[in-house]
Structures are given as C-alpha cells and as structure tokens.
Amino acid sequence: MSQTSSNSRAQWLIRLGDGALILGHRLSEWSSRAPTLEEDIALSNLALDLIGQTRALYTRACEIEGGTRDENTLAYRRAEHEFRNPLLVEQPNGNFADTMARHLIYSAFALPFYEKLRESNDAEVAGIAARSAREMAYHVRHASEWIIRLGDGTPESHAKAQAAFDELWSYAPELFEADALDSEMAACGFGVDPSTLRGAFDATLGPVLREATLKRPRDSFGLRGGRVGVHSEHIGHLLAQMQHLQRAYPDARW
C-alpha cells in the first residue's frame, strides 16, 4: 500500500477514536457525581468502554503509521484543532437528561457504524469493531431505557428530556456527513461511509422517542466543525483537565 493510503487509514482511525475518547472523558466527569450509586457505576462502565475503544483504535492507527507516536501521544499531546471528534461529544454533561440524550444520539449512530465496520478488510480493525458493536448495543439499551423513563416520567423529567433533544438535535447531522476521507476509506474496503447510516439511526431513535412520549425535533441545518478541527468552546476546558498531568509532567508514569 502507498504511503498516502497508510496515512489516510491512520487518520481515519484516529478521528473515530477522538469521538470515543472525548465522549468517554465526558462520561467520566460523572464519577462520584451521578444521581445514584448504581448509575455512577453504570456511567463509569460506559466511559471505560469508550476509552477502551479509543485505545484500540489509536494503537492500530499508530501501527499503521509506523512512526513514533503511540496512544498516549495522541490522547495527551495534541491540541484542540488536532482533535477530529464530532461536536456532539464535546458538549457539556448538563443535567442527567442532557447526558442520556447525547449518549443515545451517539450510540444509535455508533452501533450501526461498528456493525458495518466489522466487514473492514483490516482484520485488526474488524476485530475492534466487533467488540465495540457489542458494547454499543448495551449503550443504546441503557440510554434508551433512561430516555423512556425520563420522557414518560414526571412533567419535570419530560420537559428536561425534551429540552435535551431539542438542544442536541442540531449536532446529529455532523455524525452522518461523509467527507473525502470517509468516501476513500469506504471505497477501499477499510472503513465505513457514515452517510449510509442515517436510516438505521432513525429506526433506533423513532420507537424510543415514541415510547418516551417525546417529540422528534425538526431537522435543522446542523452544527458542524469538530471533524475538521473547528470546535466549540467546550473542548479547551475538557482537554485542559484531561491532558494536565502529561502536559505538566511529560512521560509521568505510575
């Protein structure tokens, strides 16, 4: 394979890992602060799933790159504009309904994504995708059950759940936008074209929102930018916390 194509494949995996890492970090911010002990552990489990996916994706990307970078370089030594996660996952946790709505939107996208990625012609990537798909199926279930109970709960929980979807819905379109890199990776059998997944996403979301008695927000123009490195203000604060130790004490180990 040519050098260009190795770089593209690594870049594509890193971008995928960025989404998982940033969302995983966001969820970890709930540790010790969740509404109940049970949900505290559940959110930490979800966070660890995502961070585990990130490690596998980054590690494979670095193998393909064949350079000196490793998973830690990618996570802790890159600046805002080098992260290519969709804007959705860097949005603040907000209240519990906000977090669950964000998580349902992401996982309903990620599940069909990884299911499709199981067919990657890179055996390592196909393996990561198989494990991730199983994990994301549980994430969809967990977030769905909560959204149903919040939406179909008290007037207050309903209002908060509806407000969460109304607020976050404009971040959904970016998940499904394919750029030249996505098309190239899908065409060569390595990756997935996210624009093919909107149907599966709607099929997951539709019944959950109905059962939750929530209104599906109107599709809007969509907010985008994260996947080309143009972020909302929130990611700077997130990275400052996540990267502090490695920035202050490079190569610190314990």
Partner: peptide
C-alpha cells in the same frame, strides 16, 4: 442488593454493579 425504579432498570443496574 440495589435500588431501581422498576424491573428492567434493576436488571440493567445489576449488570453494571455486579458483573463487572
């Protein structure tokens, strides 16, 4: 034991709390 609003959530919480 654990707290949960209903049976489905109890199963889910049990998975998260006790099968890690």
């Amino acid at each position: 034991s654990l707290h949960a609003a209903d049976a489905a959530m109890a199963l889910q919480n049990a998975r998260d709390v006790y099968t890690r």
